[in-house]
Design a protein around this nucleic acid. Structure first.
Length: 423
RNA sequence: GGAGACGUGGCCGAGUGGUCGAAGGCAGCACCUUGCUAAGGUGUCGUACGGGUAACUGUACCGAGAGUUCGAAUCUCUCCGUCUCCGCCA
């Protein structure tokens, strides 16, 4: 969300943001609507001032004067009541449009239409060379009975899975490793509920546009969130923090749910795109300062890099172009890990800086050292998302004998095992 | 699932129809004091929107929404939340 005042004064920049992000929105209409609201509100406020002044006279009025004054007051009240609904209606209309206004992307962000315009900014690690015919991750899983798909699909539908035996332990080890790393870096580890109210999804920006991607629980009017970002982003709703409190680092740990509507036929096989997964998420609230945001954005990205490096996965970083980054984002990077069976890099982490776009939606503010109340900046990035990360992990670390090598940094979390699946 | 209590500013807490955006205290901030000194005094101290160069000023906000009333923090209803007791339960 952007400030209406900002939109009013920077209409061209906002229109340009809509254009480069591929968002259809009538900014001029919003500005006209806003003008109309200001006019109506001024009128309403004048009437309310009149009403207040008038009703103040009544307590001291004599018994004879009273009925007349009350009658006059009633008339003013009727005028107020007549005006109120139209103000309310127009404010709601504006608010509904404001939810859709994109954040202005950084001038450093590459322009582009979709993910094909993303720019590779870094490559790390050597691609594996196999002296044998490597298996894809589903074949590896099946070979060791490390996952069950068909029976689970009968129970839970497509894009479901059940990890088995060492895979469950490996999954837990990865999260344990990630959480400990983040804790050492000063993050507060927060297990979060997987469900949330509608407001929280508006807060992150998943709503109103992404409703079809989110599971809904009608009995309880709750939604299953696709990331702990949803809950964490709303933790400080309506609060005015102190500058001294910032930055706040959260490491969210939660099950995540995505309907994957519209992705029929894409990545249906295996663990790349599933309805339910487990994620350790990095989240930062910091002060309203672009340089500060940029600093933490770098830090978040570096942390993800450390993680995939410790997992010994070849990866690259792409900077997402304006058309691929999402409405709320100023700048965004993806970490993509090498998937040998597909002969390409696949996204495993997504690192975003949103400036005050989310904090305006949740009304999360802080008082700066000068006493001025400001909206916070927010950032987030994946730390560990399973089972997706298992795909490059299994495929890159597979051995000729069918076992899978465990990188050194992960061994302490797996009872020191160097390999899993060794006969 | 059943019964009850409650929700006021950064925090504590008073306020049950008008003079209340809200007493008092704590914390914060500014200045003063410097033999009651890890203290004392005075002042200041919510947010948003509108008007004004500014001082200042108008409106709204006492969990949220709706209602009653000339007038609502205060009365009514709905919802949300917190707490207590009973029941059920991983």
């Amino acid at each position: 969300m952007l400030d209406v005042k900002f939109i009013r004064e920077n209409a061209d920049a906002v229109k340009e943001a809509c254009k480069v992000k591929g968002i259809q929105l009538d900014i001029d209409k919003m500005i006209d609507l806003d003008k109309e609201i200001v006019t109506l509100k001024t009128e309403l406020q004048e009437l309310q001032a009149l009403r207040n002044a008038h009703s103040k006279k009544i307590p001291s009025a004599s018994a004879e004067e009273r009925p007349k004054l009350i009658e006059e007051g009633r008339e003013i009240g009727q005028k107020v009541d007549a005006l109120k609904p139209s103000v309310q209606e127009k404010e709601d209309e504006l608010k509904n449009m404001l939810w859709l206004v994109p954040q202005i992307p950084s001038p450093k962000a590459p322009l582009g239409k979709d993910d094909s315009d993303n720019i590779e900014v870094k490559k790390h690690g050597n691609l594996p060379e196999f002296s044998f015919k490597p298996l894809d991750h589903v074949e590896i899983l099946e070979k060791h009975s490390w996952a069950e798909f068909e029976r689970v699909a009968k129970v839970c539908g497509s894009r479901s899975y059940s990890l088995r035996n060492e895979m469950v332990l490996l999954e837990m080890a990865m999260h344990r490793y990630g959480l400990e790393k983040l804790m050492k870096k000063g993050f507060t580890i927060a297990s979060t509920p997987a469900f949330a109210r509608e407001e929280a999804l508006y807060g992150t920006g998943h709503f109103p546009t992404g409703r079809d991607q989110v599971y809904y629980l009608p009995e309880d009017d709750m939604y299953l969130s696709g990331t702990a970002e949803v809950q964490i982003n709303s933790f400080h709703t309506d609060e005015i923090l102190s500058e001294a409190d910032l930055p706040i680092f959260y490491a969210g740990f939660s099950p995540c749910f995505r309907r994957e509507a519209g992705s029929y036929g894409r990545d249906v096989r295996g663990l790349i795109r599933v309805h339910q997964f487990q994620k350790t998420e990095q989240y930062i609230i910091c002060k309203n300062d672009a340089a500060e945001s940029e600093k933490w954005h770098k830090m978040l990205l570096e942390t993800s890099e450390e993680i995939v490096q410790d997992f010994e996965l070849p990866y690259r970083i792409v900077e997402c172009c304006t058309g691929d980054m999402g409405a709320g984002k100023v700048r965004m990077y993806d970490v993509e890990c090498w998937v040998p069976s597909e002969n390409k890099y696949r996204e495993t982490h997504s690192c975003s800086a949103l400036h005050d776009w989310q904090s305006r939606r949740t009304n999360t503010r802080y008082r700066d050292n000068e006493g001025k109340v400001q909206f916070c900046h927010t950032l987030n990035n994946t730390a560990v998302a399973t089972p997706r990360i298992l795909v490059p992990f299994l495929e890159n670390h597979q051995q000729e004998d069918g076992s899978v090598r465990i990188p050194e940094k992960l061994r302490p979390y797996l009872g020191g095992l160097e390999f899993i699946g060794k006969k």
